[in-house]
């Protein structure tokens, strides 16, 4: 079974979904992502779905679960790059993903994550020594 790669970028994890998602690949991603959030103390997850040509209710639910799990592990999630046709279809299907933060692209998603983290910690007290810890 193929696995979706998770890249570490400082305090963030970047997940770029490039394959046509099979259900078991989605399950594996939940396991891998939560493990990496904990291992790296990641504060944010960027889920880039620009290559996804469709999101059905299963994948939509997976996205919601990933965001909820990450939040419990003290990381914010931003879903970015959704194709317009996917957004139209998703809303007609009845999934608005209203509880998931979204951005048009990775760059804007990164900005949103930085803002979310700054709001968590307005005085910058938490991250000072955390950032440079060895892997």
């Amino acid at each position: 079974m193929e696995r979706i790669p998770i890249l570490r970028m400082g305090r963030f994890l970047l997940v770029t979904v490039q394959v046509d998602l099979q259900d078991e690949v989605v399950q594996a991603l939940q396991d891998d992502l939560t493990a990496k959030i904990v291992r790296y103390g990641a504060r944010g997850v960027l889920l880039d779905i620009s290559a996804l040509e469709m999101v059905d209710s299963f994948i939509g639910r997976m996205i919601g679960h990933l965001a909820a799990m990450s939040r419990i592990l003290d990381a914010h999630t931003v879903v970015c790059g959704m194709q317009p046709a996917v957004a139209i279809t998703l809303v007609e299907l009845g999934l608005s993903l209203g509880f998931v933060r979204t951005a048009l692209n990775v760059e804007k998603g990164m900005k949103l994550l930085n803002e979310a983290i700054a709001n968590d910690d307005p005085h910058g007290l938490l991250d000072a020594e955390d950032d440079e810890r060895p892997l």
Partner: peptide, 17 residues
């Protein structure tokens, strides 16, 4: 068109599952 494609593909995915 792309939107029609996406709709029928998504519908197919739901029912196939």
């Amino acid at each position: 068109g792309l939107v029609d494609q996406t709709k029928i593909v998504t519908a197919a995915s739901e029912i196939a599952r």
